[in-house]
Nucleic acid binder design. Sequence first.
DNA 1: CGAGGGTTTGAAGTGCATCAAATAGTGTGG
DNA 2: CCACACTATTTGATGCACTTCAAACCCTCG
Lengths: 246, 246
Amino acid sequence: MSLTKIKRANQMTEQIHYHLSNLSLFQACDSVFIRELARNGHLLCMQKGQLIFGRGESANRFFACLSGTIKLFRETSGGVQAVVDIIHAGQILGESSIFHTHIYPVSAECIEKTDLISLPLALLEDRMRQDTALAFAVMRMMANQQRQQDHEIENRTLKNAPQRIACFLLGLIDRNKTGRITIDLPYEKSVIAARLGMQPETFSRALQTLKRDLNLDIAGTRITIKDIQNMAAYTCNACSSEFPCA
Amino acid sequence: MSLTKIKRANQMTEQIHYHLSNLSLFQACDSVFIRELARNGHLLCMQKGQLIFGRGESANRFFACLSGTIKLFRETSGGVQAVVDIIHAGQILGESSIFHTHIYPVSAECIEKTDLISLPLALLEDRMRQDTALAFAVMRMMANQQRQQDHEIENRTLKNAPQRIACFLLGLIDRNKTGRITIDLPYEKSVIAARLGMQPETFSRALQTLKRDLNLDIAGTRITIKDIQNMAAYTCNACSSEFPCA
DNA sequence: CGAGGGTTTGAAGTGCATCAAATAGTGTGG
DNA sequence: CCACACTATTTGATGCACTTCAAACCCTCG
């Protein structure tokens, strides 16, 4: 490598190191490990629609989402998708393939411009074997995802479309806010619809129902909720957990 | 303790030790640990309908299912339930409360006569911190559960009632059998219905549809499948994974 | 044999999907 | 900066899958 190339590589490593040290998952990890990760990390800038990995592909890298949004989904041979989760900045993805014989168990696609760091699974796996705190952090993460999935199954079983939307909106609310609240939908309505297991048309109509029943103000992608308690009653009565249900 | 009481206690410990050493989760654990678990284990014999633990209760024990069947579910204040999983002999339950501030994240109820061992969570947790292999075994288990849940969400999103039942039946089939196959439903139809997210009436009717479309023989709780490939095509075409997908 | 829970069947209603078309919104190149 | 093209969203009309409620049936077990 030329001197300028080395310099640029070092800068890149610095940048990656900075981002990694901000991830909650690595909070308890020592700087040596994070530095090693950084040296082996690639910065990826992906566009809306780009596939990060596909279900069934062999996996030797996992990813940290720095900015943007990613949908995790399963897809039939006919091309129909079931969205399983949505990943935001600060979260990681692909790590669970460690436990699936290094095969990605779902597909991941960017649903807007997204910055990622690609990292070797082997480093994480090795480190987890040595560092109990890291292993437990991963387990805590997995356990939380599991609880979320349980909640999702409950939602699909017990709630109708407007209630599922209301539940989703409540999840977007900053915990310690109160009174009148305005929300900007974090991504396309059709994606939210898929995430909630309904068609875009149903989403649109269900949102109208919600507007009528709960007296919401809706302007395009911006929604104002006047009475949160009312909304919580509307959806949480059909659910095992109460607002705020994280 | 009297001598006979001590003797009886030792016998009990022996019995528990025997069962624990057969659990796949503890295969890699040394005998000392299993013995310590056994000393602190209680044998529980529960009847159909008995609650093992309730969602939200504080947790300091987990359980190993020796025989019988347990449903994990979430329940609204109105008493409606969403069945999240069904636990069989050889599996454990309640362990994930370690990662939820020692609160059970779901409720567990026996749906038939069931034998359990109750064990202290603290022992498992401590041991996981020392024994990486055990920690990884737990993670593998959690990862598998997660994949199952993803599959379940896909099922509920993409499959109709008859297809979900067909998928369930395929999951009961011994992998290396072929040709004409007879299955006995492992528990009440209404429980299967709940597990699949449908009403008992819907289950009954959907099973008729299946019988008609796939030419099944159905006698009460016993079902004979004449053409597995046909059945796989029927349900797996609406799914991201192919038979056998377990 | 009778009681009680589980299952099936029937009739009716409802929520969501589907298909089609109109409208709004967004980004692009002239 | 506007006009056009393309995508996202909404709206309408219709059909179907599943739910709900009610009653009959079946099966098991005391």
